[in-house]
């Protein structure tokens, strides 16, 4: 029995648009995942299908080997914090915590209230009176306090100021270190999340274009900088996923691994950070 969430050949269409195109991916192994994609790439649809908010047109979802569909037991292992706020408008924050505990016995009320305190979230406030940022904070607190084996967070830092974002990442790392669960951070804010995640799944236009470790992804991309002529010569026969030119200088982003002995003279080799790699990969697909 594999301890994971598996999607197998999942297809989801909305009218003429194919939101998820034959998606096969696994989340497991007690890691922090980054589910990265541009706006509209299919991240939320993917997560919604895992949690039965939407139904796949084809394919299946398995949680620890069991089909997830209409399966209360499987759903109990997953907690998703989505962009849409599904709590009743008139429910107070404190009651949101208390009710979540009814449905998720592992939910820690103490932890939730202490986090609310740290974020200065007033537990007597009604859900409808929270700002965008504080709505995200409420949902993040619930997700982190749920202690679910699979905790899925969709755009968790939406509307959060820099201080709160920083606090949030710290809390994710602490919770992960404590519970050793599987956490999926789905976001289009690549840079911030880059060092927190261990594995990366990149989704673009409904298709999974990368699924592996962050280290693996970063090892597969590099850039060369030099005169346009030299760069073009070097780039021949290699997979160029993007480039920038300024005057007579050119920077080419290459998908692959550089040779052991480096690059020819006149060219400067450097690594590419996750965000830049992501941009180039998704741009390359567009062209």
């Amino acid at each position: 029995m594999k301890v994971s969430i598996e999607l197998k050949n999942v297809v989801k269409r909305f009218g003429k648009v194919t939101a998820l195109d034959n998606v096969t991916v696994t989340f497991g192994g007690n890691k922090i995942y980054g589910l990265l994609g541009r706006n509209g790439a299919g991240k939320t649809t993917l997560l919604s299908i895992i949690t039965s908010r939407l139904f796949a047109d084809e394919g299946e979802v398995l949680v620890d080997g069991e089909p997830a569909r209409e399966n209360d037991r499987a759903m109990r292992k997953i907690y998703m914090m989505g962009e849409a706020t599904l709590y009743p408008e008139n429910m107070r924050v404190g009651d949101v915590f208390r009710w979540t505990r009814e449905f998720y016995p592992e939910f820690s009320l103490d932890y939730a209230f202490s986090l609310a305190d740290s974020f200065k979230l007033d537990c007597r406030k009604k859900v409808k009176s929270l700002s965008t940022g504080y709505t995200s904070i409420l949902k993040n607190i619930v997700a982190l306090s749920s202690n679910a084996e699979y905790t899925l967070l969709d755009e968790p830092v939406l509307g959060l100021d820099a201080n709160h974002r920083d606090m949030f990442y710290r809390l994710v790392i602490e919770k992960y270190a404590e519970r050793q669960n599987t956490i999926v951070l789905s976001t289009h804010l690549i840079e911030e999340v880059s060092e927190v995640i261990e594995d990366v799944v990149i989704i673009d236009g409904g298709k999974i274009i990368f699924d592996g470790s962050r280290a693996d992804l970063l090892a597969h991309g590099y850039s060369v900088l030099g005169s346009t002529e030299l760069v073009n010569r070097y780039a021949e026969g290699r997979t160029v996923i993007g480039s920038e030119s300024l005057g007579g200088m050119k920077k080419a982003y290459i998908w692959g691994k550089p040779e052991q002995d480096g690059v020819p003279d006149g060219l400067e080799l450097s690594s590419v950070d996750l965000q830049r790699l992501f941009i180039q990969l998704t741009n390359a697909r567009q062209n």
Binding site: S52, R53, D72, L86, M91
Partner: peptide
């Protein structure tokens, strides 16, 4: 509508 959304958020199947 309201209970449906609340219960789905809390991982309850439609059957339940």
């Amino acid at each position: 509508k309201e209970p449906f959304r609340m219960l789905i958020q809390n991982g309850i199947s439609r059957k339940t």
